[in-house]
Design a protein around this nucleic acid. Structure first.
Lengths: 232, 232
DNA sequence: CGGCTCCTTGATCAAGGTCAAGACATGTGG
DNA sequence: CCACATGTCTTGACCTTGATCAAGGAGCCG
């Protein structure tokens, strides 16, 4: 019925930890026979703001940044996508051009689901649409939080907030290093500030023994203090 | 079957221009017999950030601001709700405390729909959940746009953007005055800045013949220039 | 009238943006 | 393996934006 090609350790046909687990077997069959697997290098653009959505992407491996670019070319990172996240569904559902772009930060494996298939699942399967309502409401809550953070907080507090978001999304390894490695510029583009300012603020946090810096890796030394800063 | 009490010119039981038009007749009956009508003065708080959601509110008359407050008491306005909008659904669906507060800007009439009823509609009626997915995706798109605006734009550009949002949501009267009247402080709380800064920037826009100011009323003189500023 | 609330303006100052220059790291082709 | 190029990080100096403080004016209402 289905073969399982070997993409590293990844089982492309396993949707247990994704929103597609709410599909009925019949729909899973449709899904299996319509998906397309994409193996991408790092720094590959998956879709671009303004273009027409062809479908949604399920992340199987790797991390992507979801961002917007203003017309001076400066980019702003809205969020990241990690394995088992789906991206691009907002535009598919609204049937509008993508309002963001997506780019791989590291080599990635994506599963592409055509828009028509995705929409038909929504129409046929109420449990599935219900879960998608929940998902988009969750993202909406996060976006609203982010709006307030940007509007009311100081640079340092916003940086703390961003580090916490990264911590909650990607966790830390056994040595307390964040499991995502970003350039200073990427961090600046999340916080909405200049690279130099981020460097100075990171140095501040290090001086206060809240974090430690080893190359691009960031080590969380004092989560409590970081949370206090972020919750300011 | 249903009586139609007279709340001004408002037909409380008419849901034609709201998301409830997707309910089947049987569900409308349930809705009619479970709603509660609230007539509120201006500056009344409908729900508060952090409290448990009891249900959703349909705006029948008036304008409300949806905002968050930080712990220094400074508020940030996320958006406004106007007649036929529903508010509070995000928290009901996520079953989380409200992440925002809602307050009337003028005397208002709201229809309260208990959470359990609202959720049951979602579970029973796929068309209804589909529409709600669309609604939350639309709000998500707007939120993402707002995030980028706040992060990348100058004060003046953000003000232009906010004026455009107001224009698109509330329109203008025959003399080109915005159909919503806000205090300078409210505008500042949308843009995420200080009241004084807004006053200075409004004066700037007036000097450039882009807007005119008559008391609290704002007149749009040059929509093109305003859009160019906002789209910067 | 007096007491609100809201608007406005000026002066001052700090946060953070910008520019410039150099250090360090990484990768690539010869 | 080296030489060079490119990308990233860091620091210092300077300057702009917009936040804050202070004071006064305008409008409104009981």
């Amino acid at each position: 019925m289905k073969e399982t090609p070997n993409h590293g350790q990844i089982d492309i046909y396993n949707f247990d930890d994704t929103i597609f687990k709410y599909l009925i077997n019949e729909q899973l069959e449709v899904l299996w026979s319509n998906i397309e697997v994409l193996e991408l290098d790092k720094n590959i653009v998956v879709y671009t703001e303004g273009s027409r959505p062809k479908g949604v992407y399920l992340v199987k491996k790797g991390i992507l940044k979801i961002y917007k670019t203003n017309n001076e070319g400066k980019e702003h990172i809205i969020r990241f996508a990690k394995p088992n996240d789906i991206i691009g569904f907002r535009s598919v559902i609204s049937d509008e051009p993508y309002c963001t772009s997506a780019k791989t930060l590291e080599p990635a494996v994506l599963v592409f689901v055509p828009a028509s298939i995705f929409i038909s699942f929504l129409k046929e399967n109420n449990l599935f649409s219900l879960q998608l309502v929940k998902l988009s409401c969750k993202e909406l809550g996060e976006s609203n939080q982010f709006i307030t953070d940007l509007a009311l907080k100081s640079l340092k507090e916003r940086l703390a907030e961003v580090l916490l978001i990264l911590y909650n999304n990607f966790g830390t390894d056994k040595d307390n290093f964040l499991r995502i490695t970003l350039t200073r510029e990427d961090i600046a583009n999340m916080v909405g500030t200049a690279t130099e300012s981020i460097i100075r603020q990171l140095a501040e946090l290090k001086k206060e023994n809240i974090i430690d810096l080893v190359g691009k890796k960031i080590k969380i030394l004092d989560l409590k203090k970081l949370e206090n800063l972020g919750k300011q």
